[in-house]
């Protein structure tokens, strides 16, 4: 097992960095919740997303109390948990995913399930599955730097921090210094799934951050739901993240794979 992990991390690490080396604009990151709509959909959703043209995929680890999420993602968390999804099961589902999927994969999750799983074990399993990065929104920066960072680095995992319109310039710099892979720009003061389009104030914020000359690429998320909002976000960042709108697609009737393809086509073309 150890040998395999070494090979995996040496040969395939930094898929996220590679992505941004080859593509610096209109990068599409798509989020879905593991275990939704059905327990075993994880790998088929990943494959369908890759085929449809997603550049990066973010898998949400379901949690009983997702405070940063709006109703759509909350509901997907509830369904996933009642389907029986656990972090252990997710790791099993992802075990051979690198034989089928080559786009970078990021896991996003609230910290408690990861703490219970064990941070060393979690990172080692991520590396073994070929996960490239992590987004842990409620992990404080000092704890990341003191406890988590060495473990992430040992396992070749990049770490994304979030910024919001309220984040001060000094803190944006601090976050830029401690982020690897990409910065997650939350588009507005909101939970996920905000319905409104992109306002002038938001555009001003996108521009302000764009002009800061940060080291890391930036992806804009929250409220990105279609071609119009995706295009707008891409004007002032390297790309964007679609979450709630995609969860709604997964909840639609009909063939899931063709629904995914239709939706992604509409966004990027």
């Amino acid at each position: 097992m150890t040998n395999r992990r070494e090979i995996v991390s040496k040969v395939e690490m930094n898929r996220i960095e590679k992505l941004f080396q080859t593509k610096s604009s209109r990068v599409l990151n798509v989020y879905f919740t593991a275990g939704y709509p059905k327990l075993d959909d994880t790998v088929s959703i990943l494959k369908a997303l890759e085929t449809s043209g997603a550049d990066l995929i973010e898998i949400g680890i379901p949690f009983s109390d997702p405070v940063a999420d709006g109703p759509t993602i909350q509901a997907s968390n509830d369904v996933a948990l009642s389907n029986g999804m656990t972090l252990k099961l997710l790791m099993e589902q992802l075990k051979d995913v690198r034989q089928e999927v080559s786009v970078p994969i990021v896991l996003m999750g609230y910290i408690n399930p990861i703490v219970q799983y064990g941070i060393e074990r979690f990172c080692a399993d991520c590396a073994e599955c070929g996960v490239d990065g992590l987004i842990l929104p409620d992990l404080p920066m000092h704890e990341y730097l003191e406890v988590y960072k060495p473990v992430f680095e040992k396992n070749g995992l990049l770490n994304t921090f979030l910024i919001t319109p309220q984040t001060s310039e000094a803190r944006i710099r601090e976050i830029d210094n401690n982020t690897s892979g990409f910065i997650y720009m939350v588009s507005s003061a909101s939970t996920t799934g905000a319905k409104t389009g992109i306002s002038e104030a938001q555009e001003a914020y996108f521009k302000r951050v764009n002009e800061m000359g940060l080291k890391n690429p930036r992806l804009i998320g929250f409220g990105i739901s279609n071609k119009e909002t995706f295009d707008k976000a891409c004007e002032n960042a390297n790309g964007a993240i679609i979450g709630s709108a995609f969860i709604k697609v997964l909840g639609q009737e009909g063939d899931m794979e063709s629904n995914i393809k239709t939706f992604i086509d509409q966004v990027i073309n």
């Binding site: 949690f63 656990t86 972090l87 252990k88 703490v115 219970q116 409620d138």
Partner: peptide
């Protein structure tokens, strides 16, 4: 057992998987 909810680390009733 020790866990994290509502912004602090504390003792928390939870499943083995860390669900509250």
């Amino acid at each position: 057992k020790p866990g994290i909810l509502h912004g602090s680390k504390t003792l928390l009733m939870q499943t083995e998987d860390g669900q509250v």
